[in-house]
């Protein structure tokens, strides 16, 4: 019953590629950031917390607009790419990755931070008195204890990147195979009055989003049950 055309498939594959890559980058970058935010008593933490949470409240167009300027030939990101001798980020897949990393950052950082905070400092102190270095403590105590937080973070980060539209349109435009993700493809179909095509992709997205959210709530339910036992 699905009658997707070549462009639809290409959009789906591009979307999955983008979301997968962004999730991976966010887990690597977001974890130390979340750890720091959860454990540091620095006066900077509220500032960093606010910056991380910005994409939650800003219209995606605002974020996209500033990212576009930053990626332009005179922007800091543009200067950097020029210095490194790579082509500009604007209207490229690389640009989408950078934009999406900013856009989905809070969805990855928050669950990890909450999980580490819920664990409390005592297990870390215990590990320290048993001779575990800070890095050792991270791998032997933080990771296993905050595992549900990491799972939630990965699922939310992935799903949120899949559902992105505004930022992509601002910094990526609409280049098939390069920046035309599913949400943009749907927009295109609607613009060309291809409602049947738009329906199919939209329904797919809907089912995907529902399954993802179901997964997250299941995960949280299991986690809270565990908390009761302890």
């Amino acid at each position: 019953m699905l009658e997707l055309n070549q462009a639809d498939y290409s959009a789906i594959i591009l979307t999955l590629k983008l979301a997968g890559l962004v999730t991976l980058i966010l887990l690597v970058l977001g974890t130390p950031l979340a750890y720091w935010l959860a454990t540091s008593r620095s006066r900077l933490t509220p500032v960093i917390n606010a910056i991380v949470a910005l994409p939650l409240v800003l219209p995606p167009t605002v974020l996209g607009f500033y990212l576009l300027i930053a990626m332009g030939p005179n922007g800091p990101l543009g200067q950097l790419t020029q210095m490194l001798g790579i082509s500009g980020l604007a209207f490229s897949f690389g640009g989408l990755v950078v934009g999406s990393v900013f856009y989905s950052l809070p969805f990855v950082v928050q669950p990890i931070k909450n999980a580490i905070q819920a664990m409390g400092s005592r297990p870390l102190e215990v590990a320290a008195t048993l001779g575990a270095s800070p890095l050792d403590r991270f791998f032997s105590v933080v990771l296993p204890n905050a595992k549900p937080g990491f799972l939630t973070a990965a699922v939310l980060g992935f799903a949120h990147t899949v559902g992105e539209f505004g930022v992509i349109l601002m910094i990526g435009g609409n280049i098939p195979g390069e920046t035309r993700v599913v949400s943009v493809q749907i927009y295109d179909h609607v613009e060309s009055l291809e409602y049947a095509q738009a329906h199919q992709l939209s329904a797919l997205m809907m089912i995907f989003a529902f399954v993802v959210l179901l997964l997250v709530f299941q995960l949280n339910r299991k986690q809270s049950r565990v908390n009761h036992v302890f």
């Binding site: 297990p123 590990a127 320290a128 008195t129 270095s133 800070p134 105590v141 296993p144 204890n145």
Partner: peptide
């Protein structure tokens, strides 16, 4: 730092690593 001091520490409430 704590992990380099050769100590054993028993906390007031039993603090086993739950995992």
């Amino acid at each position: 730092p704590t992990h380099k001091r050769q100590i054993g520490y028993v906390f007031q409430e039993p603090s086993l690593l739950a995992h």
